[in-house]
Structure formats: C-alpha cells, structure tokens
Design a binder for these strands. Structure first.
Lengths: 185, 185
DNA sequence: AAAAAAACAGACAGACTTGTCTGTTTAGTA
DNA sequence: TACTAAACAGACAAGTCTGTCTGTTTTTTT
C-alpha cells in the first residue's frame, strides 16, 4: 500500500522542467533521464505526456492554496489578509526561481482546444478571485467602489504586478502595488 | 527596388501561426506550406526560425505603437488618453481573435537565455509604461499617490485586466478596470 | 535578347519527438 | 521459499523538427 517514490520523482522532475524550460521544450526522455527512472515505468504511471501536465497543474494548485492558506491563517483582519496575499507573492520571489504563475505559463503554451488544461487554469484563477472577494466583503469598504469592482481591481493589481515582476526579474512591482493598495483601502 | 511580396507572406503567415498556435508548435514546414513559398526562399530571407521570431516581435511592436498613437491622437486631455488606452485594448477583442499580448505569450515560450527575444519584450513593456507615466505627469493627480506610484498602478491594472480577459475570453475585465480607474482619478 | 537575381520543388541529413514493446531484474508479500 | 507486482534497460516505430543542398524555372534588369 505504500506510495511508490517513483511516482513522486516523475512528478517532481516533470514539474521542475515544465516550469523552468517550458512544457513543449521538455521531452519525455529528459524527464526519465533526470528522474532516473525507466520509460516503461513512466508510462505505467501516466498514459501520456498530457496526463503528466494535468498532474503537475493539480499538484501545483493544491500546494499553492495550501501554502497560501497557512500564510494567511495567522493574519488578523480582512485588509491585512489582502496585504498578506501580496506579501505571499513577494515571498515567492525569494525562495526558488520564480518566473511567473505556472498556470499563465502553461496557458501560453497549450492551445485552447485542450479543454482539460484550460479548465484547471480557469479554476485556479477563480479560486484566487474568490479569496479576494471574500476579504473585500468582510472588510469596511470605504473605497467608493462596489465590493465586486474593488475585488476585481485588487485582483488585476496582483496579476499585473506579478506579470511585471517576472519581466523585470524583481519583486519591486509587487511591492509598489502593495504600497498603493494600502493607501487605497 | 520593389519589395518582394514573398517576404511579406512569410512574415504574415508566421505571425498568424506564432500568435494563434504558439511559437514552438509552429514548424518551418507549416509556414512555407501556408505561405505557399519554397523552403529555400524562406531561408534566403531569414537565416533561422529565431530570426523570423524577432521580425515578428519587431513588426508587431511597431504596428501596435502606431495604431495606439493614431487612436490616442484625437483624444484630448491626459486622463482621457489613459481611458483611451484601456478602450484601445477593449477594441482589440472585437477585431480579430485576441488571445493576449503577443509579447507575454512569447515570453512564456522562450527561455531567458534568448536575450534578443527578451530585450524586445522588455522594451515593448517599457514603452507602454512610459506612455502611461507621461499622461500621469501631465494630468492633475489628486489620487493621493505619487506620480510614479499611480503610473505603476494604472499599468498593473491594464496588464492584469488584459490577462484576466484572455482567461475569461471576454473584455469584461478590461471594462471593469476602466470603470474603476475612472472613479480613482 | 542576354545576364543576373529570385523563387521554385523537393530530396536529404541528423537529431529529436511520443509512445510501444520485449525481456530482465529487483522488491514486497503470502 | 514461491509468487506477484513493480521497476529496470533499451530497442524500435513512425513521425516530427530545423536547416542544407541540388537543380530547375520564373522574373527582373541591363
């Protein structure tokens, strides 16, 4: 019944390569070479490269929401939780080589016809927007904007600042967005 | 001295395919087939696929800034020009199949080691930020934010809303961002 | 009309792609 | 200890990729 570590090595290696060098530029042969497993073993765990991609997206989404939740848990108050959301993204630049949201990277590589992939991307973004919306509803909104409009705005700020930060290779844009947000709400 | 239409057909076809299905998923053979040219002709105009990519990025950047400039020219006042910038992006969804900023799409497909590609991406984004910054400096900034902070915020809004719109396949997010911006400044 | 330039078709090289299959070896369990 | 399940190595198929090259035909210029 014990979970095979082979499956873990496949997913860890594939995740790293998909993220660092792109999905289409990562071949099955590179995955098995760096994971040090046999090709037949890979195809007994996954039926296709696409299945590995879906597992990558799912595991990343789960890991992300889990780490975000534990980061926000200790923060009191909806406004501070929103600030914490930005700080969480700033932190991602410190650990590891953050080069942008994995979902957005895959989105640019995979055609819309791959519905299973796109569903996961949309689901992941809806989850973030829902988290923001909940905090806005719980807080004292004196911005002059409706709750939904403010929640949207905060989401656009986060998404835009994160994209900018990956272009500039620096978290400064997220910091700037956070500073402005603190003055707005 | 007349410009060969072969070169145009290469660039037009490659641009369409790179944008619609991605750079890595587009092969030289598909480009020459759909452009109805010979492979040797393509390689007499470009030395490599990467050169075609660079020409695509350059021609898109030039076309974009030209169309934006002519869109903003008739608009009076810096605030209205900023609103016009968002409206320009909303318009892009109506014409053609807009599926996101070409620069951002390529960014997700090409490794950072391709410096020539990344330089063009950064240059293109800096140009937009500069346009926004100029309007902010020219306008009556009563937002409570410093000019640079406000310019950043507007840029994040635009970038984030555009990304969101391509995920939702609807310009609603850009409209929402524009509505909020109008209340902010 | 002759010379030069450009585009043509398409074979070819060499390396890569995903996925299948055969057979062997290791590991866990009854 | 015998049985079963999993992982192993690696050849192979059938196709893709970029880029080169040969030789022919069309177009343009002188």
């Amino acid at each position: 019944m014990k979970e095979s570590s082979v499956n873990d090595r496949i997913l860890e290696t594939a995740s790293r390569l998909f993220y660092d060098q792109g999905y289409n530029l990562t071949g099955i042969n590179q995955i098995i070479a760096e994971a040090e497993i046999a090709k037949a073993s890979l195809y007994s765990h996954y039926n296709s490269k696409t299945e590995i991609l879906l597992a990558y997206l799912d595991s990343w989404a789960q890991d992300f929401s889990q780490r975000l939740e534990s980061h926000l848990k200790s923060i009191k108050g909806p406004k501070n939780k929103l600030f914490g959301l930005f700080e969480f993204h700033i932190e991602m630049y410190r650990h590891s080589n953050y080069t942008g949201c994995p979902m957005l990277k895959i989105k640019a590589e995979v055609p819309r016809t791959e519905t299973a992939v796109w569903e996961r991307i949309e689901k992941s973004k809806k989850a973030i927007r829902q988290i923001i919306k909940k905090q806005v509803q719980d807080m004292d909104n004196k911005s002059g904007l409706a709750d939904q409009a403010l929640a949207n705005l905060i989401y656009y700020l986060l998404e835009g600042a994160t994209v900018s930060a990956t272009i500039a290779s620096s978290p400064d844009d997220i910091k700037s967005a956070l500073d402005s947000l603190k003055k707005l709400i």
